[in-house]
Structure formats: C-alpha cells, structure tokens
Design a protein around this nucleic acid. Structure first.
Lengths: 204, 204
DNA sequence: TCCATTCTGTAATGATCGATACACAAAGGT
DNA sequence: ACCTTTGTGTATCGATCATTACAGAATGGA
C-alpha cells in the first residue's frame, strides 16, 4: 500500500546514520538543519518527509546510537563471566569507543541535553531516561552477581552502579577535552581500583 | 576621567551575577539575550555597553563562577592537612555544591562547551582550559604529598588527578539528572574507595 | 548655562533558525 | 494514456537570534 508514488531517492538508514554523527558531534542545538541536510545529502523537504521534524530525527538518531555504538559498549555486561569482569570490560570498551579516531569523542547520550533550556523537553527527557536505563543495566548485573553469590549479600548494587555510570559520564567529558585512550583507560583502571572496597560495603 | 556622562543605573557586579546564573542553568547557547536581559533587569544596549558582547559576558560570568562557587569547592585542596583528606573534602564539597537548592545543579564549567559547534571557539577553549587547570590543581596537591612523603615516590600524580577530576565531571551530569546529595556523596565515597590502590601504583 | 560625555529605552537591523508552499518529477493502478 | 500518490528542488515563510541606530535623559566640567 505504501509502494505507490515516486520512490525515495536516498537511503533512509544511511541518511539517519549521517544525521546521527552530526548530532553526536554538534549536539541538538549545534546541529543546524543546514548542517544536517548537507551531511545527509538531501534537501530540507526530503528530511521532513522522511523523519517528521528535527526533534523526531534526533530521537531516531539517539536510538540508532544506542543500538550501534551503545551496544558495543554495553555488550560486555552480558557476556562476561563475573560482574567484576563485566564492569571492567564495560569501562575498557568505553575508553576504546570514546577515543576512536574517525568518530566524535565521548558519548552522544551522556553529553546530550545537559542544558534543559537549549533542547526540546522530549529530547531532554529521552536522554535522561537513557542514562538512567544504563545505570539500571549495571545495577541489574550487580544484583545478578549478588544472587549468584559472587558478591556479598547486602552490597548496595544501586550505589555501585551509580558510581560506575558516573565515572563513565565523566569519561565522555574527558574524551571531549581530547583525552587519549591511555588517559581514558587510566580512569577506567582507577574506577576498578575501588571495586574491592565498594563490594565489601553493605547497605546499613 | 571616567566619571563623566550619565551614571550607570544598575549594579554591574549584581547584573553579572544574575547573568552567571542564567548561563549556569541554560548554557551558552541556551541563554538568549532576551533571557539574559530579563534576568539582569536591563535592556540590550546597557548590556552591550557594560560587557561588550554575549561572548565577553560569558567569559566574565565564567570567571565569576570560578572565583565564587568554584572557590568553595577547591578551597579544601589547600587547607586540608593531607592529600587524602584534601581530595575527600574536595569531593564532598562538590557533592554539596552540586545539590544545593536554589542554584542550578552541576558545574557551569564542567557542563559548558561540550559541543564545539554550538559555542564560540574562545568560549570552548576557555572552558577546556579551566577544566585542565582544575585537574592540574589536583595534580599539584598530589605532587606536594609525594614531596612531603605522604605518598610513595613514583605515584602517578597526573593519572590520579585525572581520575578524580573525571569523577567530578561525571558528578555534574548526575546532578543535572536530579541526583540527590546522597547519590553524589555515594559517588564521592566510591571514588575515595580507590585511593588506597591508586596511591600504591607507581609509574612503570 | 551650555557643552561634552555617557547611559537608557525604543525600535529596528541583517542573519540564521526550523519548517513549508508550490510546481514539477517519478512511480503504480486502471 | 491518464489519474493518484509520493518525493524532489527552489524559493520562501515567520520567528528568533545577536547586535546596533537613534533620540532623549542624566551627569561633570567650563
């Protein structure tokens, strides 16, 4: 029913990926329609026909980021045999991703929507929600480790998860400031240095 | 020589403080001239006569932030008797400042200029430089501790400083996401949990 | 008192923003 | 071949952005 009319002359998925990179580098407010259409190789009306509006395009780009770049980073959480290894690999994957040449440094989601006034409410909310969900993934992995007996019963999984998520967010800023892979790895190692003490603490 | 002509009808320092709060909450790009002049209680020509342009106003506001809010946070570095206590107090002061009711959450400097394209180059550079200088303050305190014998000779002061600065940057994002004082303190405690291991490591 | 100087408020500047009106092109269905 | 439907390119929309012309108001100095 929808294969009538003139066919689209560009690859929607490819255009979305290009838009994602622009948003990643410049942020929502820094990515002008002019910059977006130039990078996507299309004109404004095509963008609006295919994606709705800038806000909707951003939300799609954010999801694409989460499902491509994000997946690389978070995959370790589910494949590593122990929680400690999972968090360690997660941080090292972060260090690697954030210093990857050819892509913007730091995380689209961590660095986006930090100034409410500069961004539509829905975008700000979606970004905050994503950050929360990521913290939650860490927490769930830690809780699984408690259930499996790797970690002591009573370890505050939420607190530990918040700590590692926060370190990762800081790594985005470090990456934006030009921090090298070594600098990022150093932070990852530093955070893992807290593991022993953190997983000894119990909820009071 | 300059007390000729019609006197200024507003308090420049007060207006700058109000502008600082707007930039703090909204960021450079989110703070429109309309919002700035409204908060400052003056009209655009008065703003331009007193501060030059938006970019110059931002740079002044940033310096004011560093010398007021910033000083509260960094004071501990110089007053605490040991480096460990200095860093610990620094992180706790951060947790307190970033959750202070009545002020925007998180740090103006940590959260500013993270998207180059959305901000004048000079602003972006000044913010990055400030973040670097802050890391340097930590490093210098750690090096002093090495010189004094508190820390082992060979501890990588730069690496430890980068770790704690990065954690603090992450705390700004946590604060923006509504993280409570308890959540922020929890991160501070987590970072301090790494102290023992970090200060055992030596440069290879 | 009159002038030079500086500030204030109104109102407007050109530039850029996100978003579209419109006419034409390219496809399928009949 | 014709109609319907949808995408494309040009050119433009009103809104908002940062910035400023301009005329009047308020001061000190002559």
């Amino acid at each position: 029913m929808s294969d009538k009319g003139r066919p689209r002359s560009f690859d929607r998925a490819d255009a979305l990926m290009r838009a994602m990179k622009v948003f990643w580098e410049k942020g929502y407010e820094g990515a002008s329609l002019t910059a977006l259409t130039a990078a996507m190789g299309i004109n404004a009306p095509s963008l609006y026909a295919a994606f709705g509006c800038k806000e909707a395009l951003y939300l799609e780009a954010m999801e694409l980021y989460a499902q491509t770049v994000g997946t690389d980073i978070w995959a370790a959480l589910e494949t590593a045999p122990t929680a400690r290894e999972a968090v360690s690999r997660f941080l090292l994957a972060t260090a690697e991703a954030y210093s990857q040449p050819g892509t913007p440094h730091g995380c689209l989601i961590a660095l986006g929507g930090l100034h409410q006034a500069a961004v539509p409410e829905a975008v700000c909310d979606a970004l905050t929600r994503h950050r929360m969900e990521n913290t939650d993934k860490l927490r769930q992995r830690l809780e699984a480790a408690i259930a499996e007996g790797e970690l002591r019963d009573g370890v505050d999984a939420g607190a530990v998860a918040t700590f590692y998520a926060t370190v990762q967010h800081g790594m985005s800023i470090l990456a934006r400031d030009g921090g090298s892979y070594e600098a990022l790895k150093n932070v990852a190692d530093g955070a893992m240095a807290a593991w022993g003490v953190l997983t000894q603490n119990t909820v009071p």
